[in-house]
């Protein structure tokens, strides 16, 4: 009882650090994401023992080793499935899946799809660096067409996929995007994801300094980002640009970039509604790409409520007990036709 009554310990980010030496390359975007995760756990008042971080294989997937929580570094692509079993077993835990563009969208695509649609209360953070880092520089499912890498010396001939479009297509209930070095924004997104009741899916633009340095410069560099990203705010019009003079307007089913003024007012712009039950708006936002001349949205795209698998599976047990009574082995063994030999 004394443990219950004593006030919760006040932790600081350092309390969430494990002793293990961090092996990421100096300057890797992963450091910043790790730091924001620790801060988010502190801000959320999470107890270390209640947090489990599950990962697959890849640079990002080493993260559990660096956190002083429970952690499970699993095998390539399977973290969402492992986290599903864990969350079913221990639904009171705060379960996080750390994955990358290769781990989550290539080898583990199938598991990612099904984890998202089941909507367990887990948080999936996908570090997108558009390259394979741990295997030293092959193109990934998010690498742009034409990308020259070790395995594509003449340029990649694969069409990239967009992580958030996939998540939305899988009936995701929480979809967001942030950037490794946008520390405040990233903390905000992580905290909101943690508070969401259901699966949250977060794409984080992450710079791989060694094999794909600068892939996200357009979204990160001080002189470029204002024109190339657009911060989503619920209920607000989509405005961006250094002078906040540009906006996104709907033209039929298509978004278009417009200049404010010259007869175009804020009210003419597309207004963000993250709670829209219909995911088409979120999907449309996920399709806005830099290479097509659009600013890329960051923030919360979509946040709705749907039944949670981990809650439902435990509810069915309660219902079965109410209907059939607590299982009795003796009766179970004797169900069906029996006969006695004297």
């Amino acid at each position: 009882m004394s443990r219950l009554q004593s006030p919760l310990p006040v932790l600081n980010p350092a309390d969430f650090a494990s002793g293990q030496e961090i092996r990421w390359c100096p300057g890797c975007g992963n450091y910043s994401i790790l730091a924001q995760m620790k801060k988010a756990f502190v801000a959320l008042g999470r107890l270390r023992e209640k947090v489990v971080i599950v990962s697959g294989i890849g640079c990002s997937s080493r993260l559990p080793y660096y956190m002083n929580t429970y952690g499970f570094h699993s095998i390539h692509g399977r973290a969402p499935a492992l986290a599903t079993g864990l969350k079913i077993a221990r639904s009171g835990l705060s379960v996080w899946v750390i994955t990358g563009d290769g781990d989550g969208l290539s080898i583990g695509g199938n598991h990612l799809i099904h984890a998202i649609r089941r909507n367990l209360d887990i948080n999936i953070v996908l570090f997108n660096n558009r390259i394979y880092g741990l295997t030293k520089g092959q193109y990934s499912p998010t690498s742009p067409l034409g990308k020259v890498t070790k395995s594509s010396p003449m340029g990649s001939i694969e069409n990239p996929i967009h992580p958030l479009s996939i998540a939305i297509g899988c009936e995701a209930t929480f979809v967001a995007r942030s950037i490794d070095t946008h520390v405040k924004h990233l903390s905000m997104v992580l905290e909101r994801a943690a508070r969401h009741d259901g699966t949250s899916f977060i794409e984080v633009y992450q710079n791989c300094v060694v094999f794909n340095d600068g892939a996200w410069d357009y979204a990160k560099e001080q002189d470029q980002k204002a024109d190339n990203i657009i911060e989503l705010e619920h209920g607000k019009p989509l405005i961006f640009g250094k002078n906040r003079d540009k906006g996104i307007r709907l033209h039929g089913m298509e978004p278009e970039v417009v200049q404010l003024g010259k007869g175009i007012a804020e009210d003419d712009l597309l207004f963000h509604n993250e709670n829209c039950p219909e995911p088409s708006l979120a999907y449309l936002l996920s399709r806005m790409r830099h290479e097509d001349g659009f600013p890329e949205p960051i923030g919360v795209f979509h946040c709705v409520e749907k039944p949670r698998y981990d809650r439902k599976i435990n509810e069915q047990i309660e219902q079965a007990i109410q209907k059939q009574g607590v299982g009795n082995l003796e009766e179970l063994f004797r169900s069906g036709d029996t006969w006695t030999v004297d």
Binding site: V54, F72, S74, I75, R78, A81, L82, A83, T84, G85, L86, K87, I88, A89, R90, L93, N110, H111, I113, H114, I313, N314, Q316, I317, Q319, A320, I321, K323, Q324, G325, V326, G327, L332
Partner: peptide, 28 residues
């Protein structure tokens, strides 16, 4: 037999079936 506290998870494939089994084992 859910009234015995049996949790059955129909996975997306056998890889996930065992991965989830490992997760549940880790969960005790």
């Amino acid at each position: 037999h859910k009234n015995f506290g049996v949790l059955t998870f129909q996975a997306e494939d056998e890889i996930a079936a065992l991965a989830a089994t490992i997760g549940a084992a880790y969960g005790g």
